[in-house]
Simulated assay, not measured.
Amino acid sequence: MDKIRLSKVLFIACLVLCATPWVGTAMALIMGVFFSLLLGNPWLQKSAHFSKILLQLSVVGLGFGLGLGDVIRTGKDSIVYTIVGIACTLILGYLLGKLFKTDKNTSALISFGTAICGGSAIAAMAPVLKAKNDEIAVALSTVFTLNSVALLLFPLIGHLLQLDQGIFGTWAGLAIHDTSSVVGAASAYGAQALTIGTTVKLTRAIWIAPVVIGMAFFKKSEQKAKIPLFIIGFVLAATIRTLLPQYGHYWGELAAIAKQCLVVTLFLVGAGLSREVLRNVGVRPLLHGITLWLSVSCLTLVTLVFFGVA
């Protein structure tokens, strides 16, 4: 059996294993990263495409595990932190871009991805800035690399500081870039953290649309932004659970399936961290991204610990 065929067989075997309860989110991510770096992902583009679809479906499925009241309450409680956090992150990102002399568009994309929703935010903002492919690739690579670190690091810090699940979930939702890493870190910490982290993250992601529209107006661009459909699906799922509580058992089953699908998703996310992605991350963008992310994470955590969640 040649190397390519062997890697395909092992890749499928890992996917099947991640679909079982024996593998958790952190382990799935580590498996994906090591698989990609050691054997190479045989379906790099396809797995990246399907990971996005599976993530969106999983997030919608998680909505069946929540009541609409919980979604509204959590979103309302975190709204001030979300607005202030986005504004401060964008300002700090701009200043750090000047400090590290990062390319203007790359700096803006990294800052926007850190402030709101990682790769989704970068993809939405790139046309407005008329960013080149290499600028988009560097920004995505930087954010993606830090996402992988956050998924493993945040639960360790949370346990070390003995954070309660409410604070941890809010912190993860506000300070981690992509939805996949938020739900991965939060689910590893606990069920309540997952509920809060996912809702806070999706509340944050809604801001993609108004910020992109604002930037388009400033840049005099015709680019339009829309609220991601999976956020609408998440709210609809929570609404269905609330309106039809008699089918609670089935909604719980759907939510459980969604959680396991997230494990598979994180394997695919980890398998996307290829050698090429690592090579795309230059020193200046990486320093910019790390400094911004650490600053936002630390300031958010200190604020939550001292002032708590409303």
Score class of each variant (00 low, 15 high):
residue 1 M to F: 06
residue 3 K to T: 12
residue 4 I to N: 07
residue 4 I to C: 02
residue 5 R to C: 06
residue 7 S to E: 09
residue 8 K to Y: 00
residue 9 V to M: 10
residue 9 V to I: 14
residue 11 F to Y: 14
residue 15 L to H: 01
residue 18 C to Y: 00
residue 19 A to Y: 02
residue 22 W to D: 05
residue 23 V to L: 03
residue 27 M to S: 10
residue 28 A to W: 01
residue 31 M to I: 12
residue 33 V to L: 12
residue 33 V to M: 14
residue 36 S to D: 11
residue 36 S to H: 03
residue 38 L to A: 09
residue 39 L to K: 12
residue 42 P to G: 04
residue 44 L to P: 00
residue 45 Q to H: 13
residue 46 K to W: 00
residue 49 H to S: 07
residue 49 H to A: 08
residue 50 F to C: 09
residue 53 I to H: 01
residue 54 L to V: 11
residue 56 Q to S: 09
residue 59 V to H: 03
residue 67 G to N: 14
residue 68 L to D: 12
residue 69 G to E: 13
residue 71 V to E: 00
residue 72 I to M: 13
residue 76 K to R: 15
residue 77 D to C: 05
residue 80 V to M: 11
residue 81 Y to V: 11
residue 82 T to H: 04
residue 84 V to Q: 05
residue 88 C to E: 15
residue 91 I to F: 06
residue 93 G to W: 15
residue 94 Y to F: 15
residue 95 L to M: 13
residue 101 K to I: 07
residue 101 K to Q: 13
residue 105 N to E: 11
residue 108 A to D: 11
residue 111 S to G: 06
residue 117 C to D: 03
residue 118 G to N: 04
residue 119 G to I: 02
residue 122 I to E: 05
residue 123 A to Y: 03
residue 124 A to Y: 09
residue 125 M to E: 10
residue 125 M to W: 11
residue 125 M to G: 06
residue 127 P to H: 08
residue 131 A to G: 10
residue 134 D to N: 15
residue 139 A to D: 04
residue 140 L to H: 08
residue 149 V to K: 00
residue 151 L to S: 12
residue 152 L to Y: 03
residue 153 L to G: 09
residue 154 F to E: 02
residue 155 P to K: 05
residue 156 L to H: 02
residue 173 G to V: 00
residue 175 A to Q: 08
residue 175 A to P: 07
residue 181 S to Y: 06
residue 182 V to L: 01
residue 182 V to Y: 03
residue 184 G to A: 09
residue 186 A to E: 07
residue 190 G to E: 10
residue 191 A to S: 14
residue 192 Q to W: 03
residue 192 Q to A: 14
residue 196 I to F: 01
residue 198 T to A: 12
residue 201 K to I: 00
residue 202 L to N: 04
residue 204 R to Y: 00
residue 205 A to I: 03
residue 207 W to F: 15
residue 210 P to Q: 02
residue 211 V to N: 08
residue 215 M to F: 14
residue 215 M to A: 15
residue 216 A to E: 07
residue 217 F to H: 14
residue 220 K to F: 00
residue 222 E to P: 14
residue 222 E to D: 15
residue 227 I to F: 00
residue 230 F to W: 02
residue 230 F to D: 01
residue 231 I to A: 02
residue 233 G to R: 04
residue 233 G to P: 08
residue 234 F to Q: 02
residue 235 V to M: 12
residue 241 R to I: 03
residue 244 L to Q: 03
residue 246 Q to S: 14
residue 247 Y to R: 08
residue 255 A to R: 01
residue 255 A to F: 06
residue 260 Q to L: 08
residue 267 F to L: 12
residue 270 G to C: 09
residue 275 R to H: 13
residue 276 E to N: 11
residue 279 R to F: 06
residue 279 R to K: 15
residue 283 V to H: 04
residue 286 L to E: 05
residue 290 I to N: 06
residue 297 S to G: 11
residue 297 S to T: 13
residue 298 C to D: 01
residue 301 L to D: 03
residue 301 L to R: 07
residue 302 V to K: 02
residue 304 L to K: 01
residue 305 V to I: 15
residue 306 F to G: 12
residue 307 F to P: 07
residue 307 F to A: 15
residue 307 F to M: 15
residue 309 V to Q: 01
